[in-house]
Design a protein around this nucleic acid. Structure first.
Length: 299
DNA sequence: ATGCATGAGGT
DNA sequence: CCTCATGCATA
């Protein structure tokens, strides 16, 4: 594979990759496929077939961007061994904001308010021993983990798929709660969401679970009584080839938040669209914040 | 189960 | 541009 960068980069990458290996040692399965499929559907992506990509270009960069040296040299200078301890400053999360772009159902739950606020969904039958745990603001990672596991197990017991749960949420008619995708349900169960996101979703899924089990019980009864009941647009997903991915990881280990200039340079070197590289870094940062890999999770 | 993408809201 | 919550497409 003639992957050739500037000679100086080899050294950089070698060292950076070493760091990356120590830090980001997660790539369990690597099916090296050269996903060149649409590795760079440059053309397509460039024009966003979706259409209205309201991008707000802003020419802030002073034309005199002559950082003396140039290129990613800045990185090599840092290669000394900076190793960001991923401090993760800002926390708070406005558990909210969701859009529902074009064809999904009409959801979105009441946002605003501190991250520890939910639209309490308590709707227990009056004459029935209820469960407690109404303390919405329960952010105990340990508790969340336990709930996620219980949820998954009971969901399976009900014979419901993750996708089913997602769409069924809309039937709960909870204020501001629409449906969710299979992806999100899966991530909830596997704790691969941010801590705040988990906390926001927990009460909703808990409500669904209770309703679903209640419905299951009723159905069971009905059956005992002899009553039986009788069910675009192709979005493209850029695939970044392994070599390029390795380079990105190396850069990320050195500088998780490269400037627009640097992103452009990296993009050019790897022959990827700048936006693809930018998004890759954004997603990489989000990964670091997933509950599962959070230092506090103590799983 | 996950990789890359979109969009709202915020700096 | 960033962060976050989410989703489509795909391995």
């Amino acid at each position: 594979m003639g992957n050739f960068f500037g000679g100086f980069e080899d050294g950089l990458l070698a060292r950076a990759e070493a760091l990356a290996a120590a830090d980001i040692s997660k790539s369990p399965q690597h099916s090296m496929k050269h996903d060149g499929l649409y590795g760079h559907t440059a053309g397509d992506l460039g024009m966003h077939p979706s259409g209205p990509s309201r991008q707000q270009m802003q020419m802030h960069g002073p034309p005199s961007f002559g950082p003396s040296d140039s290129m990613l040299d800045q990185l090599s200078t840092n290669t000394g061994m900076p190793l960001p301890g991923m401090p993760d400053h800002h926390n708070m999360a406005p558990v909210s904001s969701h859009h529902n772009h074009h064809q999904m159902y009409p959801p979105m739950y009441t946002p605003h308010q501190s991250p520890m606020n939910h639209p309490h969904p308590h709707n227990m039958p009056p004459h029935h021993q209820v469960h407690h745990s109404m303390h919405d603001t329960e952010c105990d990672p340990r508790e969340l983990e336990a709930f996620a596991e219980r949820f998954k197990q009971r969901r399976i017991k009900l014979g419901v798929t993750q996708a089913d749960v997602g769409s069924a949420l809309a039937n709960l008619k909870l204020p501001g709660v629409g449906c969710l995708s299979q992806s999100t349900i899966c991530r909830f169960e596997s704790l691969t969401l941010s801590h705040n996101n988990m906390i926001a979703l927990k009460p909703i899924l808990q409500t669904w679970l209770e309703e679903a089990e209640k419905a299951a019980r009723e159905k069971k009864e009905a059956e005992q009584n002899g009553l039986i009941s009788a069910a675009d647009k192709k979005r493209k997903r850029t695939s970044i080839a392994a070599p390029e991915k390795r380079s990105l990881e190396a850069y990320f280990a050195v500088q998780p938040r490269p400037s627009g200039e640097k992103i452009a340079q990296i993009a050019e070197k790897l022959d990827l669209k700048k936006n693809v590289v930018r998004v890759w870094f954004c997603n990489q940062r989000q990964k670091q914040k997933r509950m599962k890999f959070s230092a506090v999770t103590g799983h």
